[in-house]
Computed example of a mutant assay.
Amino acid sequence: MIERSREVLSDLYPELAVPGGLREALAGEAARTGHGGGPMDPVEGYDPAVAACGTCGETRFAVYATNVEEREFRIEISAESGRPWGAFGSTDDLAVVNAILHAWRDGASIDQLRREWTLLAADPLDAAPPGRVVSTAWRLTLERSPLIRLGDAELAEALYAQPTLRVFFPFPSHGQFSLLTSTRDPFYEEVPRVVPSGDGLWNVVLEWSRWSPEIPSRVLGSRLGAREAAALVAANVPAGSGPAIEGGWPHPAPRHR
């Protein structure tokens, strides 16, 4: 879980820097608007100051204030089946969160909520504000959110610890961990990927790509720990690479960025 300080709360989320944090702030907003409603609960694995959730039958409404770079209340609403997908949103306005929460408590369906508030989307990354898809993907990855594909936790943290790599889109799949230069298909992969070698160790591999057919696949390092692998990836980022663009990589791929 990402470390966060009381100073960050005071600067970005002043209403949360009080006993009760986000839950108390939501209760106060509901009282101010006359919406009422029951109390929110803590979210397992999160600091109670920055996360809160409510349930109604099999549905769940959760709010997170875990972005330490910008003020952002991230909303997750499960579908009636209780599955983790439904509606996702992002806003810097606690009053908007309160309004959506009130409508949900009044029985509004996922479709109704998405029609009323266009900030809500069917996918958590689609709900990320423009320019913040990559940072949202990293945050969800590090928070071990079940909403996106997750790779090895230790490796993810090691890769993120390398500032050079944070600008790429994290894409774990089938045990491997790729860092992509586009956030949607067609994906562009110009950075070496990390693949398991067994016993919790990793190989760093530069994969052949249809975007760069003149560069052959080759292994850059074998049987490395997570930190060693991440450092080797960072040392082999091609000059001029990144940051990742939001959307698919334009076709045909340019020779140089």
Rank of each mutant, 00 (worst) to 15 (best):
T118G: 07
G248F: 00
A17Q: 02
M1D: 10
S90Q: 03
L180R: 11
I2G: 00
R255A: 15
A231D: 14
A229T: 02
E29S: 15
T66Y: 02
D123I: 00
V134F: 01
E15H: 09
A108W: 15
E214S: 13
R71D: 05
W85V: 09
E80G: 07
A52C: 05
G21M: 10
G20A: 06
V205H: 03
R139Y: 00
C56W: 01
F88G: 03
R132E: 13
R83T: 13
E154A: 15
E29W: 12
G45N: 06
G21C: 04
P172Y: 11
H256F: 11
A231Q: 14
T33A: 13
A49H: 06
P213V: 09
E58T: 12
A230K: 04
L119C: 04
I245P: 04
A95V: 12
H251Y: 12
Y46W: 13
V219L: 15
L206S: 12
V68R: 14
V133H: 02
G86P: 08
S182C: 02
L159W: 10
G198Q: 10
P163G: 06
E44H: 02
P216Y: 02
A229W: 11
R210A: 07
T91C: 10
L12K: 07
R105I: 00
S217E: 15
W211Q: 13
R6S: 14
T55P: 02
P238C: 06
E15A: 13
A25Q: 06
A156D: 05
A87W: 12
G21L: 13
H256C: 04
T164N: 01
A65R: 01
P84H: 10
L220G: 05
I2T: 11
P146N: 15
V219R: 08
R210Y: 08
G240R: 01
P129G: 05
P130K: 06
G34L: 06
T33F: 09
S173F: 14
L224H: 06
V167T: 13
A137W: 01
N236Y: 04
L94A: 11
G36I: 03
D126K: 01
T91F: 08
P19K: 06
R184E: 07
C56N: 13
R32Q: 10
G151L: 09
D185K: 09
F61I: 13
P130G: 07
P243C: 03
V133W: 00
G221D: 01
A253M: 05
R71H: 09
A235M: 03
